[in-house]
Design a protein around this nucleic acid. Structure first.
Lengths: 204, 204
DNA sequence: TGAATTTCTGAACAGTGTTCAGTACTCTAG
DNA sequence: CTAGAGTACTGAACACTGTTCAGAAATTCA
């Protein structure tokens, strides 16, 4: 009686196809310019079919973001697994965060640059999903700072305060480079490393 | 023959009324949730009338932002006029920038947190208007840094690089506090001053 | 008063997210 | 092999969006 399983698998296939197609379109055209009808057209289903798999448009993006930010977590774990010096680990982690944002600008902007007030009339579960996206990584940042403090390579202080302050500024680098793409920035590599240098230097 | 003048004045009055009403609505409900019809309803004109005064919706926001950011310029000039020590001036200016963003979250997000790619299919003039919003203030930041360098209170360096790096991080504080309003931030006052301390400290 | 200008509107267009009655299909039980 | 249950899917519709434009209304000028 593998029928139920096959049907479930087929249902999951379509779900994945919707997510993949939506991801492609979001990257191609940006969140606002992608409509449910465009997604439906590309997968050759009626728009209403999508609603059998996702509550609404935000639900699709929330799922995509959750998946994408899982990748950030993986990248950060990889760095942790290298077993480097705490300060070097911190530096690489912050750098990985920025690179991640630049690699996934649409997702990053959606999760971190959309005022939460815009999601007021939204299913709570989607809101929490989006909200939770970054929390795992923020926890890693706190761990990283704690490790640095324990090793005595940065001065003692309120970890929560330091972490929030650090995140805000790293976020600024990431979001600024994404959203002000037209701005005549100096060499990006230099700009990022210089800023990270200041950021980490100010922890000593 | 003051007829023409009176009519021009009346026309300008309606223009201002549209801008004021739009500003109110944007603050109340956020840019995306305000429609041309809502604006038209509140001023008791037909939606199409608005198009006699503004090219499109973006044109309205662009005008609002230009006006708002004029206020930022004024605030920064006031600080400059105090004739304080260069480092103190820099500190107060950065603080004023953050406070300004928190005072006008909708405008700030619109100008700095909307990917420029979203304005691709937009009249060039509006794009330049939005783009130009922050340029004046950025120039002031560069001047402030140059003054500090001349006074020998920060170390020598590429002013453009320092200014961009500084702006990115100050932007992060501002945008982060606005867009992640639900995040359980520690005391905001402390968070801002701590971050500014790190930022300015890393210039020495 | 009549003509010319300007101001303003109503209806329409093409698009959006979303809902839902009803069709088409697949699988199960008799 | 067929009747019916159950699922997957669709087409049409709803209420909205920004925007356009022919024509109505109001105002000014001769």
């Amino acid at each position: 009686m593998g029928v139920a399983e096959r049907r479930a698998r087929e249902k999951d296939d379509l779900r994945k196809k919707i997510l993949d197609t939506a991801a492609d379109l979001f990257i191609e055209q940006g969140y606002e310019n992608v409509s449910m009808r465009k997604i439906a057209d590309r997968i050759e289903y009626a728009p209403s079919t999508i609603y059998l798999h996702f509550r609404d448009k935000v639900d699709i993006v929330a799922n995509l973001c959750a998946a994408t930010f899982g990748e950030l977590d993986r990248r950060l774990q990889e760095i942790l697994d290298l077993g480097l010096a705490p300060l070097e680990t911190l530096h690489r982690s912050l750098r990985a965060y920025i690179d991640f944002g630049l690699d996934h600008p649409s997702h990053y902007v959606f999760v971190f640059c959309t005022p939460t007030s815009m999601f007021k009339d939204m299913e709570q579960s989607s809101g929490e999903q989006i909200y939770g996206c970054g929390m795992g990584s923020f926890g890693r940042l706190k761990n990283g700072l704690t490790a640095c403090m324990a090793a005595g390579v940065i001065r003692e202080g309120d970890v929560e305060l330091l972490a929030q302050s650090t995140w805000l500024m790293v976020h600024g680098i990431t979001a600024g480079l994404i959203c002000q793409a037209e701005f005549p920035f100096v060499d990006k590599e230099m700009l990022i490393e210089h800023s990270l240098g200041r950021l980490i230097g100010s922890l000593r």
